[in-house]
Design a protein around this nucleic acid. Sequence first.
DNA 1: CTTTCGTGATGATGCAGGTTAATTTTGGCT
DNA 2: AGCCAAAATTAACCTGCATCATCACGAAAG
Lengths: 248, 248
Amino acid sequence: MFTERFLRHKRGAALSAAERARLESGISEVRTYQPRRLVARAGETLTESTLLIDGFMCRYLDDRAGLRQLVAIHVPGDFLDLHAYPLQTLDHDVATITGATAAIIPHSELDIIADAMPELTRKLWFSTLLDAAIHRAWLFRLGRLDAIARVAHFVCETNARLMSAGLSEGRRFALGLTQSDLAEVCGLTTVHVNRVVRQLREEGLCIFRSSLVEILDLERLTIRGQFNPAYLYIEDQAELLPSFTRRK
Amino acid sequence: MFTERFLRHKRGAALSAAERARLESGISEVRTYQPRRLVARAGETLTESTLLIDGFMCRYLDDRAGLRQLVAIHVPGDFLDLHAYPLQTLDHDVATITGATAAIIPHSELDIIADAMPELTRKLWFSTLLDAAIHRAWLFRLGRLDAIARVAHFVCETNARLMSAGLSEGRRFALGLTQSDLAEVCGLTTVHVNRVVRQLREEGLCIFRSSLVEILDLERLTIRGQFNPAYLYIEDQAELLPSFTRRK
DNA sequence: CTTTCGTGATGATGCAGGTTAATTTTGGCT
DNA sequence: AGCCAAAATTAACCTGCATCATCACGAAAG
């Protein structure tokens, strides 16, 4: 069951058994990737899309000097380049962070789904728009938060997404990010990320041990990062969001 | 013809006459808005979407202190909250910048389109993903560019979008932004935007006269802002992109 | 006609985070 | 165990942008 995490616990977008089965049957191949490999390059025309099953991937833009700005981190259950189905070409690069496994679904299968299953199509559309909502939260992070809050916000977001995907108990996770990756996410330098990481540790908010992140005080971390998980569209019913962040 | 600018000159997403007519017939109402008004609030459930016909609007997120981070600027031809169709609720606020006119299309009409016209649905999907691509470019801007480059990048982007929509000859436009709006776009303070604006003028790159922007040297401005318009998915054929930015 | 308010302009000062460079630690490999 | 490259850490220094304050101007309001 490769699609079990796809749209898991997403408000108003749960897949029916038939829809899930249809997606599964559209999988042409399951591919494995080495860590730190380029998977797709900006400007490429894609004829298939990739549902991440295991491991972590990212998307990024390069500046003139070759510095990267990450624009997304993908966790298992994310349909990581589904946007290439309507867009056809990519405007950014895609790469693995850790080793990864992914299911490949040809766009020709998506065409058939689009013709015959409008409700499933709407849910696929939803999943690409969830990525866009996360982009907006990242814009807020870069535009309005200081360095510590940026890292705190990212940790809270990633924690919430992993819980929603059923991949974390809610206080610790490891997604293979180095401090320089974190810098590329947060628009900082690695040196400064290192300072921030130390300060978060000293304030008792969270600890980074190599790639493992352990949250010590989720409530204070949430406040520090001005994190409001509404944009993740996680079902209210599920006990996935700490009470202090639950929407009214 | 309210939809004439929608997806205008967008690569691989041109509307057929029938598709355009179908959209037109889905319009339930044409609404006008005063400048600087809130149009939709984060958390609201929308049952209709809004195609901007005239004027400029924006979307933004608020921080705890009430400071805004703009996450999008919308120009005529943009379907500004189409993402609310699959998402149902909004994760951000929407407001006018100038006075504006917009066509309202109920989601019930979009349901009918989704059932019957998969190709048009794919183009609607495309238009929401174009917004996401612009989000990514904004992430790059905030994460990797310094203040002058951020403003330069934004000016180049807006110029390209307005040209593509047929609303600018290509060197000047007025979208009613104050310097503090520009600050909310670029993650800066108004004071610093003022200095950046002066420097862009002194370097002969572009001039801000109240809300009018006049580009003096598009090529140097493009380089200064590291602007690469590929993410706007504008048709190559159209003479809309300066030669030095045309993709190979 | 004066007051108010929004916008723009400009100077002084301080600090968050960048830059550069060196050193230490870690974790794969053989 | 020993080696090597990648990652983390630390220090010294510097700068871009924020912050705070003031002033000018024009449009709208009373």
